[in-house]
Write a protein that binds this DNA or RNA. Structure first.
Length: 304
RNA sequence: GGUGCCAUAGCUCAGUUGGUAGAGCAACGGACUGAAAAUCCGUGUGUCCCUAGUUCGAUUCUUGGUGGCACCA
């Protein structure tokens, strides 16, 4: 009998997580829930490594949730992700299927696995009008009075700062509204390669995706009316290819800097996973070089 | 072949009027609860090309090599 409600497969980029997740879902009569903060966007495929072929196992297609659920350029966030996760999760259970959660976005993985308490916070027009009288510096001070501001993403623009303050004030005046996110008893498996291999794989995959039309994909998004700043904000592929397309980087600089940025990203992902382990999550790591059948057997032994 | 310039961190280079050296990038470690592929913090990892001198002391000055670049043949 199964000891867990869910199987989670995580790991840094370019480790073959998705194929393994699809394989396990196929085996367990399950469906995949993606934990990827960029694959949620439609039309962002090559640059996010969204490969639909990964979901085809032995000729049948494993259903996949939380991919292609927002338009490129739209705003998305952890709260929204958590909300949509639970809907998809319950839908999967109601159909008697087994959920396999798979991805590399640490914050999104943790929001689900740890059950972050996040509340729907409505916008408050009159409060926003009041706050908009303040300068960005003053807003930053107000926000600091509510919480420790650990990075600048909340205080880069007045709109962001006002929203952050709005959330803090709402939570303070409505302390009972925090809803309990169900605690999930998930088996967590991590896939990783040694550092040198990880880097080689990232570089090889980047070259491959450039050949497959990644630049054209980004050009298409720009032609479709997306603002270069919005695309740049998505980071990595979308950032550096956009900078190349608007003439700020040569093709060679784009490749080199993007390659480095992806290596650095993979490192940050590993830092996040180590933090999760320090907090008490048990991640059963397996070597990416292990043949698929052995990976499956490894997970089977843990599941049953 | 001759002349000149250069050789310092993984890379590009600075510097030491002679007291064993530091920037950028890379690399490494960390943080993270409403944009997270974002954002932010920390760390110098070194036969200062080799050799022989001068000197209390040489990465620095001198000799001779080696390698690279430029110009002249």
């Amino acid at each position: 009998m199964m000891k867990y409600d869910m199987l989670t497969i995580l790991g840094p980029t370019a480790t073959g997580k998705t194929q393994l997740a699809a394989r396990m879902a196929h085996r367990l009569n399950g469906e995949v829930l993606s934990a990827d903060s960029r694959q949620i966007y439609r039309g962002m495929d090559l640059g996010t490594g969204k490969d639909l072929a990964d979901y085809v196992v032995e000729g049948s297609r494993v259903p996949c949730h939380l991919v292609d659920i927002a338009n490129a350029g739209e705003q998305y966030n952890v709260f929204e992700f958590q909300r949509q996760f639970i809907l998809a999760y319950e839908d999967i259970l109601s159909r008697g299927k087994f959920p396999v959660f798979c991805g590399g976005s640490g914050l999104y993985l943790e929001a689900v696995l740890k059950g972050y308490r996040l509340t729907q916070v409505p916008s408050d027009k009159s409060r926003r009008a009041e706050l908009s009288q303040f300068s960005l510096e003053e807003l930053t001070e107000i926000l600091k009075g509510y919480k420790s501001v650990h990075n600048t993403s909340d205080t880069e623009t007045k709109n962001r700062a006002i929203r952050a303050i709005e959330i803090e004030e709402y939570l303070r005046s409505n302390p009972d509204l925090n809803f309990e996110f169900p605690s999930l008893n998930s088996l967590i498996v991590g896939v990783q390669f040694d550092r040198d291999t990880r880097r080689e794989r990232i570089t090889a995959r980047l070259k491959q995706r450039l050949k497959e039309g990644m630049i054209e994909e980004v050009r298409g998004l720009l032609d479709g009316g997306l603002n270069p700043d919005d695309l740049t904000y998505y980071g990595l592929e979308y950032k550096y290819v956009t900078l190349f397309l608007i003439g700020e980087l040569s093709r060679e600089e784009m490749f080199e800097r993007l390659n480095i940025a992806i290596h650095q990203f993979a490192k940050r992902q590993m830092t996040w996973f180590r933090k999760m382990e320090k907090e008490g999550f048990v991640i059963h790591w397996l070597d990416g070089f292990m043949p698929m059948e052995e990976k499956v057997a490894f997970i089977d032994r843990l599941l049953f």
